[in-house]
C-alpha cells in the first residue's frame, strides 16, 4: 500500500477550479519529483495536501497510510507525518525560530510533557550543524527580513527538526546559491530513509542530481499528465513541456 494515495482530486479557489482530477501514489522509501509549467497547479496541490482552508476540495480523496485525510485540519495532518516546505514561507514577526520550533515540537507531544530545554537545544544544534547554519540564526524572528535563500534554509531546518514521514518540498531549491543548494540537498538526503518519502516540486534539474528521484510526474492544467522514471528530467530539460501538451491533445 502506498503511503499517500490521491484519487481524482479536484480543488477550487474562489470558485475557480485549479486541480482537475489529480491521481498520484507515493510509496514509502521513494523520492518523487513533480514538475510542470508555471501556474499548472503544483503549489495548489501541495497546499491542498497540507489542508489549506482557502481551497475547497470538490471531488476525490486523499489517503495517508490508508486513512482518509481529505477534510482533516492542517495540524492533524502535520501530526500524522505530513510536512510542507513552502514556496513562499510566511514571515512570523516576534516569534524566534527557536520558540517556533519548540512550540511545534511541543504541539505533537502529549499535554504536560514538554520537550526538556537541553534535549531541544541538542536537537536544534545538531541540525544547525548539518545545514552549516549559524547559531545566531535561531534567535531571529522566523523568516522576518530573511533573504530568499535563508527562508528556504529555515524550511529545511524545520524539516530536519520535525522529522516527518512525507515531506513536500515546494521549490525549496529556487533562489539558493550553488553552495546553499548543495547544503540543502545534503540536508534532504539526511532526512530521507526507508521509512520516509519526499515529493520535490521543482523547475530545475540540478536538485534532482543531488536527490535522485525514483519517479517524476508532470503536471499540466491541474492534472498529472505524464509519469516516468527519474531520468525523464533530461528529456524535459531538452524539450520543455510543449510536446506533452501536443501529445495530450492528439
Amino acid at each position: 500500500m502506498a503511503l499517500l494515495e490521491i484519487t481524482d482530486l479536484h480543488a477550487s479557489i474562489d470558485g475557480k477550479e485549479i486541480l482537475k482530477g489529480v491521481n498520484l501514489k507515493i510509496e514509502l522509501g521513494s523520492v518523487n519529483a513533480l514538475m510542470g509549467p508555471n501556474g499548472s497547479g503544483k503549489s495548489t496541490l501541495a497546499n491542498v495536501l497540507m489542508g489549506h482552508p482557502k481551497y475547497q476540495v470538490t471531488r476525490g480523496k486523499i489517503l495517508l497510510d490508508g486513512e482518509d485525510i481529505t477534510s482533516m485540519a492542517p495540524d492533524e495532518r502535520s501530526k500524522k507525518g505530513l510536512f510542507l516546505s513552502f514556496q513562499y514561507p510566511s514571515e512570523i514577526p516576534g516569534v524566534t525560530i527557536s520558540n517556533f520550533l519548540r512550540a511545534a515540537l511541543n504541539a505533537r507531544r502529549p499535554e504536560g510533557n514538554k520537550i526538556p530545554i537541553p534535549e531541544f537545544l541538542r536537537l536544534l544544534e545538531g541540525n544547525l550543524k548539518k545545514l552549516k547554519m549559524d547559531r545566531k540564526f535561531i534567535t531571529r524572528y522566523l523568516n522576518q527580513g530573511f533573504s530568499g535563500g535563508e527562508k528556504k534554509r529555515a524550511e529545511i531546518l524545520q524539516l530536519l527538526v520535525m522529522d516527518p514521514t512525507l515531506a513536500i518540498l515546494d521549490e525549496t531549491d529556487s533562489g539558493l546559491d550553488i553552495d546553499a543548494l548543495r547544503v540543502v540537498a545534503e540536508g534532504v538526503n539526511m532526512f530521507m530513509g526507508r521509512q520516509k518519502c519526499i515529493l520535490i516540486i521543482t523547475h530545475y534539474k540540478r536538485i534532482l542530481e543531488y536527490v535522485k528521484p525514483d519517479t517524476l510526474h508532470v503536471m499540466i492544467g491541474g492534472k498529472i499528465v505524464l509519469s516516468g522514471k527519474g531520468d525523464l528530467v533530461d528529456h524535459l530539460e531538452e524539450k520543455g513541456y510543449g510536446w506533452i501538451e501536443k501529445d495530450e491533445k492528439s
Binding site: D75, R77, F83, S90, R108
Partner: peptide, 17 residues
C-alpha cells in the same frame, strides 16, 4: 496556516502570533 501546518492547533497558533 503556516503555524498550523507545523502541528499547532488553531488556539496555540493564535497564542503564538
Amino acid at each position: 496556516f503556516y503555524l498550523r501546518s507545523r502541528g499547532m492547533d488553531e488556539e496555540s497558533a493564535k497564542k503564538l502570533l
